[in-house]
């Protein structure tokens, strides 16, 4: 299930330094590259970030940028941007080095997918590997197999 959620372009590095909103934009653009969202989705994600603060940051070094389902979501999907220069968001879990982006077409069909994702990410060994592994093929395998 996770294997389908991550499109072909969805796992990437961000090599240059950027700020928190720049990092969110870069991560969400991966979803757009795989035609999971249209361009309007990014503005809703940034709006959610401004409204609620950096609550996307859910664990030390790990964030999941997302907005609610909407017409700008074409297909449920996930993406991962590895920030080679970790970014400060204002959260107690800073700095962020693994920035996921997520979009869902409705409020129910992705529950099994996120449950599987939670299981992968609740394994400390997996998280440590994701934090240090820079080979994107290995990163993809860790997340999807």
């Amino acid at each position: 299930m996770l294997a389908q959620a991550f499109g072909p372009n969805s796992i990437s590095h961000h090599l240059t330094s950027t700020d928190w909103e720049g990092a969110i934009s870069a991560a969400v653009s991966l979803l757009e590259l795989d035609q999971r969202v249209s361009s309007n989705y990014l503005s809703r994600v940034l709006e959610a970030n401004q409204k609620h603060g950096p609550y996307f940051v859910v664990a030390p070094g790990i964030a999941i940028a997302h907005a609610s389902p909407g017409e700008d979501v074409l297909e449920t999907g996930m993406a991962l941007l590895r920030l080679e220069n970790p970014v400060v968001s204002g959260s107690a879990n800073d700095p962020v080095s693994l920035l996921f982006a997520f979009c869902a077409v409705d409020s129910t069909s992705h529950i099994a997918l996120l449950s599987q994702f939670a299981e992968v990410m609740s394994n400390a060994g997996n998280v440590n590997s994701l934090l240090i592994e820079s080979n994107l093929t290995i990163v993809r395998n860790l997340l999807t197999t």
Partner: peptide, 19 residues
């Protein structure tokens, strides 16, 4: 609970169910 009720909250629910 999360801002949108579809992402973080679902992850939190999933792990709370496990625990």
């Amino acid at each position: 609970v999360c801002g949108a009720g579809i992402g973080t909250s679902v992850l939190l629910k999933s792990n709370a169910d496990r625990v």
